[in-house]
Amino acid sequence: MKRKKFLALALAGVMTAATLTACAPLEDLYDWFFGGGSSSASRGNGTGLDESETLENGIIQWFGLPRANRQKDEAEPMLQEVAKSFDPESWHYNNGNLNGELNDTAKAALDTIAKDKLTETHLYKRTAVDVWEVQPSQTDFDFSENRWLYYDWLERGGVHSDTPTHSSSWEPYSRLKSSIQSTDAFDLYAGTFQKNGKTYAAMVMIRWSNS
């Protein structure tokens, strides 16, 4: 009997809070109070991708990027889609010197993501993407310059068209590192996520020219 009275009083308090603040639906407050587990109260992004500032700082340092040139663009939503679509069974080479690098199956998937998520917000937009397996606590970025990553060029169409065009290729880290100093600005988003019980790190780096 005492428990019923307590629950009634508690629910009444929740209803009062909802009435006074009008900041959340009653059913969400009820689930929050009684442990119903409403998904709308979650702060997750739906993909399990957690941004890693440690990883981002390592990438910026490795490439020698001027931090003052970092701006917001479309790297985060693109990486969210990459993590969502990633298939560890088919996206990576698993033999020889290419072990762990993205393959043509990944390239086809990333082409679709790039066309869907990237827009012509800047002139001569360049986007680099990579995904690799790590240990759960490993967030350092120390890659071989010989490793290849996905690279997308987004620019206006030809002389008779303003339609944006995408051209994708593979780019070695060494070549990207040597040309990146001429970048006017960049957007970087990197983090870790889990698939099939393993931890993966991923990054999307977008560079553009303002002229």
Rank of each mutant, 00 (worst) to 15 (best):
K2E: 13
R3A: 10
R3E: 13
K4H: 08
F6G: 02
A10I: 04
A10H: 12
G13E: 10
V14S: 09
M15Q: 07
M15A: 13
T16F: 07
A17R: 10
T19Y: 13
T19V: 09
T19I: 09
T19C: 09
A22Q: 15
A22F: 02
C23H: 14
C23A: 14
C23M: 11
A24R: 13
D28V: 07
D28F: 02
W32I: 12
G35Q: 07
G35C: 00
G36V: 15
S38E: 14
S38P: 08
A41M: 12
A41R: 09
S42N: 13
S42M: 06
R43Y: 11
G44I: 07
N45I: 01
G48D: 05
E51F: 06
L55Y: 03
L55K: 06
N57F: 00
G58R: 04
I59C: 05
I60A: 11
I60N: 00
Q61L: 10
W62F: 15
W62S: 03
G64M: 01
L65D: 04
P66K: 12
A68V: 14
N69I: 00
R70E: 10
Q71N: 06
Q71R: 14
D73E: 13
A75V: 01
A75F: 02
A75T: 07
M78N: 09
E81N: 06
E81R: 08
A83C: 08
A83L: 09
D87P: 04
W91R: 10
W91C: 08
N94V: 08
G96M: 10
G96H: 05
N97T: 13
L98D: 14
N99L: 15
G100W: 01
G100I: 03
E101S: 06
N103T: 08
A106I: 03
A106N: 12
A108V: 06
A108T: 13
A109R: 03
A109M: 06
D111Q: 08
I113M: 04
I113T: 05
I113W: 00
D116V: 05
D116T: 12
D116C: 00
L118I: 15
E120I: 15
L123Q: 12
T127N: 04
A128F: 07
Q135Y: 13
P136A: 10
S137V: 11
D140Q: 11
D140H: 10
F143L: 02
R147I: 05
W148A: 00
W148I: 03
Y151M: 12
Y151P: 02
L154E: 08
R156F: 05
R156G: 14
G158K: 09
G158R: 12
P164S: 09
T165L: 03
S168R: 00
S169P: 05
W170F: 15
P172N: 06
Y173L: 14
Y173G: 00
S174T: 07
R175P: 00
K177F: 00
K177L: 01
S178Q: 10
I180M: 04
I180Y: 03
Q181K: 15
D184P: 01
F186C: 04
L188H: 02
L188K: 02
L188Q: 03
A190P: 11
Q194L: 04
K195V: 05
N196T: 10
Y200C: 01
Y200G: 01
Y200F: 11
A201M: 04
R207A: 05
R207D: 03
S209C: 04
N210S: 07
S211A: 09
